[in-house]
Design a binder for these strands. Sequence first.
DNA 1: TCCTTATTGAGATTGAGTCTCAGTGGAAAT
DNA 2: ATTTCCACTGAGACTCAATCTCAATAAGGA
Lengths: 141, 141
Amino acid sequence: MVDKSLKVLKDILRKEGLRFTSQRQSVWDEIRGSHEHRDAEDIYMCIRNNDVRVSRATVYRTIDVLVKNRLVRKMEVGDGRSRYEPRLDDEHHDHMICEETGDIIEFFNEELENLQEKIANDHGYTVVRHVHQLFVKPFPE
Amino acid sequence: MVDKSLKVLKDILRKEGLRFTSQRQSVWDEIRGSHEHRDAEDIYMCIRNNDVRVSRATVYRTIDVLVKNRLVRKMEVGDGRSRYEPRLDDEHHDHMICEETGDIIEFFNEELENLQEKIANDHGYTVVRHVHQLFVKPFPE
DNA sequence: TCCTTATTGAGATTGAGTCTCAGTGGAAAT
DNA sequence: ATTTCCACTGAGACTCAATCTCAATAAGGA
């Protein structure tokens, strides 16, 4: 598990002609280790709390590499801070954000995906990626 | 047309207990006058170029009022600058953003809207608002 | 081990957006 | 029309996430 993820990272760095460093490993480990949707500062602080020396700049730089290589997904919730989540398995999902509790629920709907592609096609395009967020509230009762 | 939009603005300001000022009128006129998706700096500069004295702070403050009162829709494209568009008629639409040309195409699909609500309902929520953006590219050839 | 050069960290910088506060002006009351 | 109150404005300071700079460090191939 750990070794496999490590290999994934090393392979990507090699492919990109980048060096494997302990900082890059720490950032990847930190993001991979939880499925929450975390911001860069949180990731940075958690790494530091584990007594690993790393700078904010390196955290941001490493995240960029991970996002570009699809190991991490970047998302905006609307408060100015980007959130990150690992994407070990390549399954895709969208997000439902509760405006009352801040909870983030993941969902996936095949029909929705197909509909999107159809709409794009109708306009002469094909979908490269998409952002779909439902800002919701619990049913009254 | 102009008078009607002006009345809409005045009504909202009155409702909110706010005063009608020439700056607020300028900001509303500027946004209302084009259907493009513009950022605050662009709106600010265009007003200044029309020889109207207004500050960035006032542009931001006025946009907030307009957004809160649903005269203007705010959207993020992912580059850190919010974009704004007028919503005179209350029709809703989503956006398709071409990653090659930067073109922004508006679209609306009833089926999509219903599907979203259904998905939220299945999780015990109701949709308050949503963000749906398709980042697309033209079909090859 | 040596050597090249990518990487790092500390801190400066950027840039969108917000805040402060003294001066201005809208508009209600007279 | 004048007064009076207090919301509004502008200039610029400030915030905060994210990026950049550059001297020092450390991969990792030879």
